[in-house]
Design a protein around this nucleic acid. Structure first.
Lengths: 360, 360
DNA sequence: CTGAAAGCGCTTACAG
DNA sequence: CTGAAAGCGCTTACAG
């Protein structure tokens, strides 16, 4: 973006000259269009803007304007989020996209591993100062003392995958509630009426998925009791496998349940294995829906129908929020809580349910 | 911002030259700091960035980078939102700040009044095209057909004060749920245990305030039944007055309620009048809390304790989202649902309740 | 790590 | 409404 690859593999900056060539007008016309300094015919205007966008000039200009003030960002991550823990595909995807974008923009990312509950806000703020970081990104943590401490220090900070109910810090999360509703709504439209939601006792961001699960039942006028919950001990695959295994025993089979909505793909991976081990066929005996849209779900048998979270956009969005805050000269800038939209990915693990038609 | 007032009242652009003077360094050093093209001593770096921010150079640069592509925006508003309807202080505040910011940036805002349910998405998109608008802002509307229709047309559009559960359009809302929780939590901390939430059957954004009201009870370990709801017929002051009047009659007085949390300041205005007409003293007999932080609440007797929504930042945030979308050359850019943080404004309408201490 | 000076890119009167 | 040309602001080798 903002650069154009040349034959020799190197890239050079895109400028008004390139746009003028591409759009077939003079460079002054390009400038006029970009700045609104003269009235330009709509046709020309459109052509110029199209060219500018296509060549990445607009995005480049935008990025360049913001990053000037930012050269280092402290990245606070809980220990179980680090890359060596290869079970956590979600964090891995988020981190790798964040790293790539930072590199592209020449921002130095300094990782700061959080060790359990020991690290105080003070330690994080201290680290940011000593690294001369202009901002802090916190991944997968939103403990209240931490958030309050950091907010009190007045550094620009953003939570990724966390929320600050005191509305002091900026945050980026998936659209958890709407996403879960989307998934559940789709199961309902496929004819499922009794659905089990397998989740775990995680942070508020995960509870939002449960809220959305219930929302879909309510919005479709279905009885709330048919939206059942099962809590696994965590989100790792083996815990999902364990949870469904125990549930099948306690319940003497699937009962009336015809679909399972897992609060994370990771969990779904284990749940599918558990179901298959117990002799159930997916999706003919039971449908399974995931949440996250992480790579492995594509390669299971059957492949996992899920809600895709734009994980690769979360880091860049967080960078943008920090930039905005650092650049702004408003002291009263309200905190920004950003939810990124999710999309349903229909693959093979969901089949039509017993109720043929949509209840709507 | 981005300009500096001179003695004769005019303003001129702020440039690196001004920053270099302000920071006491050469212009090339300023450039190096802004672009990270040389390693600069932390002291100098900080001084330069401080000066750049103070003079508004950073904000200016940022704004300038984005607006180039945008010269006209269509503003779709329901008829009851228009300025002549002076009861709707919230919309008035949002619109006036949006107008001011658009003017400052040289963006032409074309109002498009929605007439009841008659206007289709097609009509709006059509109007945007004929006005050559680069984006659409929809205020206080989020009907599904409208949202889907506009999303389908592929124009950049943002909802202000609305949500798109299908996660296709961008939106800006107050942090309704967290804000209501903040308000209720504060009432609880003041010693109130039985609280009445007066609201109306509005859109989802308003229901979120009810959610937050309940959240506060749950988080504080208080019985859910003590979080009572009363629905007025709308948000106008006289409907609040009517609702509380009827409730007092039906209930033969206040009963155990010691505080009332109104889902809007506008409603609170009428509720206060109703309570006072019925002979109750605020806050000694009953505490009243509002939501919105709109001007009139400051001038009531007693003045209204409320949750301040950054109404003046909603329009600018919406513009920013449109710019981002127009500028971006990603086709798969996820929808952005943005919630702006709110702050509690403690004034005179809330007194300590019967339970002295905080339950936590 | 900082600055004087050359140079490049974008903007801006101005002509048509 | 568009473009050729002058000019301004910012960047960038380079010296110390």
């Amino acid at each position: 973006m903002g650069k154009t690859a040349t034959d020799d593999g190197r890239s050079r900056k895109v400028g008004v000259k390139d746009i003028s060539r591409e759009a077939g007008v003079s460079i002054s016309t390009v400038s006029h269009v970009l700045n609104g300094t003269a009235s330009i015919s709509p046709a020309v205007r459109t052509r110029v803007l199209e060219a500018a966008r296509r060549l990445g000039y607009l995005a480049h200009r935008q990025a360049k304007a913001s990053i000037t003030a930012l050269d280092t960002i402290l990245l606070a991550v809980p220990p179980d989020t680090l890359p060596q823990n290869n079970l956590n595909f979600v964090s891995w995807t988020v981190l790798s996209a964040l790293g790539k974008e930072s590199e592209r923009r020449g921002i130095r990312l300094v990782p700061f591993p959080l060790e359990g509950l020991a690290n105080s806000a003070k330690a994080i703020v201290e680290a940011a100062r000593s690294e001369k970081a202009g901002g802090i990104i916190l991944l997968n943590v939103d403990r209240r003392e931490l958030v309050e401490g950091i907010a009190g220090a007045g550094v620009a900070a953003v939570l990724i995958n966390g929320e600050d109910s005191s509305m002091q810090l900026d945050s980026v999360t998936p659209g958890n509630r709407f996403g879960a509703r989307l998934a559940t709504d789709w199961l309902i439209r496929q004819g499922h009426r009794k659905i089990l939601h397998i989740t775990w006792r995680g942070r508020a961001t995960i509870r939002r998925r449960g809220d959305g699960f219930v929302d879909a039942f309510v919005d479709n006028g279905l009885p709330r009791e048919d939206a059942q919950f099962l809590f696994a001990e965590g989100y790792e695959p083996h815990l999902g496998e364990k949870a469904i295994g125990e549930w099948l025993v306690a319940n003497k089979g699937l009962g009336e349940i015809t679909a399972i909505f897992c609060a994370a793909d990771n969990l779904a991976l284990g749940v599918m294995r558990g179901l298959q081990t117990a002799g159930y066929k997916i999706p003919s005996d039971i449908s399974v829906m995931g949440f996250d849209g992480v790579a492995p779900g594509e390669f299971t048998t059957p492949s996992l129908t899920t809600v895709n979270v734009p994980l690769d956009q979360m880091g860049p969005a967080a960078l943008h929020l920090i930039e905005q805050r650092v650049t702004s000269n408003r002291l009263d800038r309200a905190s920004h809580r950003l939810e990124l939209g999710c999309r349903l990915i229909v693959r093979a693990s969901v089949a039509p349910g017993p109720a043929g038609t949509s209840p709507r």
